[in-house]
Each structure stands twice: as C-alpha cells, then as structure tokens.
Design a protein around this nucleic acid. Structure first.
Lengths: 348, 348
DNA sequence: CTGAAAGCGCTTACAG
DNA sequence: CTGAAAGCGCTTACAG
C-alpha cells in the first residue's frame, strides 16, 4: 500500500538525463531547453513528485516554514489572526508552525527558542503587552501597535478609536465612560486615546480594570452603578468586555441601546449574533497578515544575500473599520429621539 | 553579529573525537563511555549546540513536526483545541504546523496534501461535519465524536448531554427546547441525544437551525416566541447559540434564570463573563490532546518499524464536565421556588 | 567503547 | 543547453 514518494533521480532515470537538469527544470531557472523542461514537468506531474523539504532545507538552509508566536492562543482574537496568517502564508508557499507564549515573558522567549530550534526561516510575533523581543537570530515581523518601537505592521488603533468616538458624539452622548483592561497595553491606550480625542468637549472618564479591586479584573466591572451616575455610553477595549457590560445592563433592566450605548473592539465571532448586535471596530486582518508575510519574505531573501537579520522596519498602518450595529443609538434626552424599545426579533 | 549555529563536527573537533561518537553520546544510545558522554554533553551545552532538524529529517525520515487540520480556524472552539494540542505536542518534543480546511471538504483535502508535502510525520485532524478523511499516507489521529468511524479520541458528548439533562430535570423544567445547528453533525446529535435521554417523561422538542428559513441559521432563532409557547429551558449545542438565546430573552425583558433557563456547550471564553454566566458542559481538552498526541506518536514509531500507516484505532472517550452557573435555575411555578430577580452585581 | 564511511535527496557552482 | 561532482549536517550499520 505504502508508496514511497518519488525522488528526483527517478524522474531523471525515466528520461535518461541527469538529476541536475531535472532540478533546474523544475525550479524554473531557465537553464534547460523549453521542450525538455516541459517533458520533465510532465513526468514529475505524472509521478506525483513532491520535492523533499528536508533535503532542500539541508542544502539551501531554508525550510519554507515560519513560526507564529502568539501571546495567548486562548485569546478570542487569536482565531482571526491565525486564520489570516495561515492563509497569507499558504499563498506564499510557507508553512506555519505555532507557538504559544502563554503566561510569562519567559515562556515567550522559550517559545521563540523552540521555533528556532525547529528551523523556521523567520517568525511573526504578536508580543505580550509591554514585552520586547530580544534578538532572535532570524528575521522577525512584529504585529503590535504602531507606536511600539520595532513594530512591523499593525492596524491603526488610534484612528479606529477616533471613528468610534465620532460616532458616539454624533449620537449625542454627553457623558461617556472608557473602560480599559490593562493600562500597560499600548494597543488599549491607543484605542481609548483615539476615542477621547474625538470626544473633545464632552465629559469623558476612563477606568482601568487592572487597577480596580478584585482578582478577576472583569468582575470589577459595575456598569449599573456607572449608569446611575449618568453615563450613557460605555466604550470598552474589546468585545469580550462589551459583552459583559451589555449583559450586565440588560439583566438589570437597562435596555440597550434605548437607555445606554455599548461598544467593543475587534468584531469577535459573537459580536454580530448577540442581541442587540455589538457596534465595534474591526481591523483588516488579512491585510495585516499579508503585509507581515511579505515583509518577512523580503527579510528572509535579503538574509540569504548578506547577513542582515534585523527586524524589518517599515511600519505600516492598516486602517480600521467602524461597524455600526444595534448596541449604539441616540441618547433619549436628545430632542426628537424617543426612547426606543428593544426589538429582539429583528435581525441585525 | 550573526553566529552560525554550531555543528556536530565542531564539538567533535573540539574534543578530537569523531562525529559518530558525538552523535551517539547526544542521542543517549549508550554506546559511549559515561565520562566521555558527559564531556560531550558539556561542550555541546557550552557551544549552544542544536541539531539541525533538516539534516536529521533527511537522514532519519522523521521531521519531528506534526500537522493540525481544523475544519475552521475561525471557530470559537479552536483556541482551546489548538492550545491543548500545542502544549501536548511541545511536551512531546513535536512542532505543530497548522492548516485550515475552511470551506469545502476539498479544501480539507488540499490542506492535508499541503501538510504532507511539508514533510509532517503525522497529523491530527478534526474533520468537517460528515466528512471522511481519505488515506493520507501518514499516521493520522482523528478527533471527532465517539460514534464516528475511525475516530481516535474524543469527549463523550452524549454523556455530557445527559449530565445537562439531569440538571435541568432536577430544576423542575417540564417543557424543554433543544436547539441544534446542523442535523448532519454527529457531535451535535450526540449531545442532544444525551440531553433527551435524561429528560425521559418530560416534554421535549428539538429544532435544527439549518432547516429553518433564512440564510443566517442563527437569525432564525426566535426564543421569545418559544418562551410564549411555554418552554422554560433552552438547551443549545454551543455557547455561541446560548449567548444568542440569552441576549434575545433578556432584551425582551424575559429574565434569566428566574423566568427561563439557558444552557450551552464548550465553555467558550465568554461563558463565564456574561451575566448571568452560562451553565455549560466542558470537555477536558488537555486530556483529549494528550491522548491524540500519544496515539500519534505510537503510530509514527510503529511506522518506522513496519509499513503500517493506518489510522490508530483505540477510541478513547474523555468524560465531560457539567459547569453549573447562573443561567440555569429552578422553574418558578415550582412550590417554594420564588422567582429570583437578577443580581448583576454579584460575581459568578 | 570508538571511528571511518556511506548516504538521506536535493542544489549549485563549475565544466563541457 | 546539459552533466559530473561536491556537499548541506546528520545517523547508522559495520569494523576494529
């Protein structure tokens, strides 16, 4: 049953030519006459020839595999990232080896080591909050906030926040609460900074969950009290928190969006299926992935030329998109805006 | 700056011995005197020696990398699976190459091809609903429902459902709605089958979203109408749907759990942070991953012996755990069970 | 217990 | 345009 994959020499033997010629023909370097090349390609196809990656890697020093280091695979944003990277890499003929730097920065370093030991040509890393990635010894593309030094590509979180802020302002909100998770996250700071900038002249307060009492930061969220203090809009830094706020309000009888507006970030998988669906800000992951992969590819190719192996610096900002859904609405004190009743049956 | 990784021969030269001896010492095959082996290990350590995976792979035919094929990386359950597999694989000294078989079964086949071409030693596949995986040419471990033929390991979905059913029954629910997504999913059929079995003697109805009108299956969900028909408990096949049901009810003013109970499956990341937190059923992913990896490892080792490359058949069922949280409660018609008001401030 | 030699399957100068 | 030869860095029989 088991049919060993055909080797290069088998094609050569079949056609009574040298392995070198087969290799040249298949790699399309053009040192072979067009018709012979064509015949070679045919036979290769016929035999179902697939070059041995290990042999090629050994010879060329390139494995055709890159590593993807994520701060926490358990993060709900991960699927989007992984999927986008996997697609872009596959299109570029690259394989993707995953590594989870769960927990500590030390684990991140270990994960990077591990990937290197496995012979990746380069890696894409989404660093942990506030961590710097030491010199890795192979090309690295970093996906982080644009304001992070050494960053390769990222969405423009600040602008995304700005868009959101404008939206809330246009809805007439006059007292807005900004809810962040970790104050040392540059991404979160950027997002909320953008929101605040768009809300000049309206009353804005910001709270960081990691500085609230309690073990579980999210448990410290108390939207009902905040509502009673007069806030009509709650801006969170992630759909996960927006969901918490939304359900907390709803289960206390505070209707969304007729009594309060709630927003998230990232357009996580559940954002569109909740009722009311979440207004959120989405980044163009495929674009981010594509830029990261192509930067990495260039770096890898450059490396085989000279010895350069530094982070590719050409920070690109991918724009973010505001997705307006039913969790935001006009403030009902506004003239002409009657309090809306929730319409759960209606589609998003 | 760039320091080429040290090679085996450099260690040999340093100690004036042969590469063969270094290799033997490092692989611990014991053909080397204890003290020499020790010195070799020291020098290797000192030099930061890391064996070249491609050279080893070329020589031994084993790459030390396995593939992970997922039906859809975008699936919210994916993080749990990927993380568990990555951990187990890392512990076993294996790298994990990911592949997304998004969309069609054809894409799944392509993804598998792709991984094979990249030289994986074996793969773990979570097959698409209803798809069979053709002979791959390398060992494969399948994670699916226990009732799927060729399955290697999985959680016992039926039992998980049974646990849930018992819970609802003990709460006094007399009219329960079972909400499935795709009728051709064996996992979903198993889950709901277990629930129904535990609910013998109470009124149970089952609805499949994929047979309801509308493009977006989830949009067809109409919990409020169902509630008005007398159902007091809504069992869904995934937390994602449970979330939809929960928010639909809440935004229509139907309090959970005092007026209706809602349950999900999988304990997705948001299940514990929603208010009220979702009662759900969780599988022991690390266990599933561990079994899959070790089965795969055995198969790979066996393969290098003889030519066997078939699916490892030794189906194991990992138990599921019922996680009771605040989205379920006693039916309020029950004697002594006063309708509870929601307590959004309270922790889970 | 240790070493010399062959070879895994490719690619790449180098000749012709 | 085509081929002979060397070599990428290991491991594994086989001798000694």
């Amino acid at each position: 049953m088991k049919q060993r994959p055909p080797k290069l020499t088998e094609i050569a033997d079949r056609l009574d030519i040298s392995a070198a010629t087969v290799s040249n023909a298949l790699s399309g370097k053009g040192r072979v006459s067009a018709e012979l090349a064509e015949r070679i390609r045919q036979v290769a196809e016929e035999l179902g020839y697939v070059p041995s990656v290990s042999a090629r890697a050994l010879r060329t020093g390139l494995s055709g595999v890159i590593g993807l280091v994520l701060p926490d695979i358990g993060n709900p944003l991960f699927p989007q990232i992984a999927q986008a990277i996997e697609n872009a890499a596959t299109d570029a003929g690259l394989g993707v080896l995953i590594a989870d730097s769960r927990g500590s920065i030390q684990a991140q370093t270990e994960a990077i080591q591990h990937l290197r030991d496995h012979g990746v040509d380069g890696m894409i890393v989404v660093p942990r909050r506030g961590s710097r990635v030491a010199d890795v010894g192979c090309p690295v593309a970093m996906i982080d906030s644009p304001s992070t030094p050494g960053n390769t590509v990222s969405a423009d979180h600040w602008c995304g926040g700005f868009l959101l802020g404008e939206h809330l302002r246009s809805l007439g909100h006059r007292k807005v609460l900004l809810i962040g998770n970790h104050r040392d996250s540059i991404v979160q700071t950027d997002r909320l900074g953008g929101v605040r900038a768009a809300l000049q002249g309206t009353e804005v307060e910001r709270v960081w969950l990691d500085s609230l009492p309690g073990d579980q930061p999210i448990g410290a969220l108390d939207p009902v009290r905040w509502y009673s203090e007069g806030f009509t809009a709650f801006v969170t830094v992630s759909d996960l928190q927006a969901l918490r706020v939304l359900t907390a309000l709803q289960s206390a009888g505070i209707a969304v969006p007729s009594m309060a507006s709630v927003t998230g970030f990232d357009d996580l998988v559940f954002a569109s299926s909740v009722i009311p669906a979440l207004t959120t800000v989405r980044m163009d992951m495929p674009k981010v992935a594509e830029i990261a992969i192509s930067a990495l590819k260039r770096a890898i190719e450059a490396k085989s030329g000279d010895g350069a192996e530094t982070v590719r610096a050409d920070p690109d900002r991918v724009p973010m998109t505001l997705v307006i859904r039913r969790s935001t609405g006009p403030v009902h004190e506004e003239a002409g805006a009657k309090p809306r009743l929730p319409h759960p049956q209606q589609e998003n």
